[in-house]
Amino acid sequence: MRARNIWPHVWLVLGVLIFSFPIYITLIGSTHDASTIGRGDVPLLPGPHALENYAQAWGSGGGRYMGTPAVQMLANSLAMALLIAAGKIVISLLSAFAVVFFRFPGRMICFWAIFITLMLPVEVRIIPTFEVMVNLSLVNTMAGLVIPLIASATATLLFRQFFMTIPPEFVEAAKIDGAGPMRFFKDVVLPLSITNIAALFVILFIYGWNQYLWPLLIINDRGLETIIVGLTKMIGGGDSQNEWNVIMATAVMALLPPVGVVLLMQRWFIKGLVETEK
């Protein structure tokens, strides 16, 4: 019994090792100086230059263009990801609330219109979107960065499905209690969807954090550079030596906020799994 149980663990540990090896290399790489990595060595043990690498990445940046310091790019990325995630959640909560709990003319048309946009990823509509943003002179602004990404058909659909499982008696009880629609939304719908919101927040934050194509297009201003785009720009085209030590330090820093969000929200996931309130 015991011996047989060992194999699944061996496989799991092996999987974890393979999965985490690149991250380990990045972590180790960020502790050596540029010349060590430049020679083509791939060190497997930590070196002595961790502090200066991180200080350079954090404070002044690196790479060919001596780019934006990581602290600024991290702040930009954080602002963008938070605005996108929060905006998506607020908008989809409200639109799902309208579609599920109200009977208004064109309700199903609204629903299908939202649903159909699921089929259009950012890349498909990127040229018209860019045109619109240029005409609104939102190029190189945080608003221009966030607004095209702020509505989510997926989240609307998920909230709609969840709201449809709320028993209609709650609506009726609230009507008899004298709660208006927004009061009902705030006092009943919102507390019931809190675990769904937490789960979606994690997914949407990471979605926002990892945005690449759209920030690359709309932002030319170094002051608004996001970390994912900035990180790629640090790697040169091969005509000069890359400062891999600084790049790897920046990469480690770019990893941390999504990890933090996942850890922070994990509590809510578990709560959502343990408590089946309904």
Binding site: P167, E169, F170, E172, A173, K175, I176, D177, G178, A179, D187, V188, P191, L192, E277, K278
Partner: peptide, 28 residues
């Protein structure tokens, strides 16, 4: 309904699951 001065007991009770008994009774 709220202006009619009535109270209703539902078949499945329709108690708000995230509120305590006190909050449920006090909500109206």
């Amino acid at each position: 309904p709220a202006e009619r001065d009535i109270a209703m007991v539902f078949q499945n009770y329709a108690l708000y699951p995230h509120m305590s008994v006190f909050q449920n009774m006090a909500y109206g």
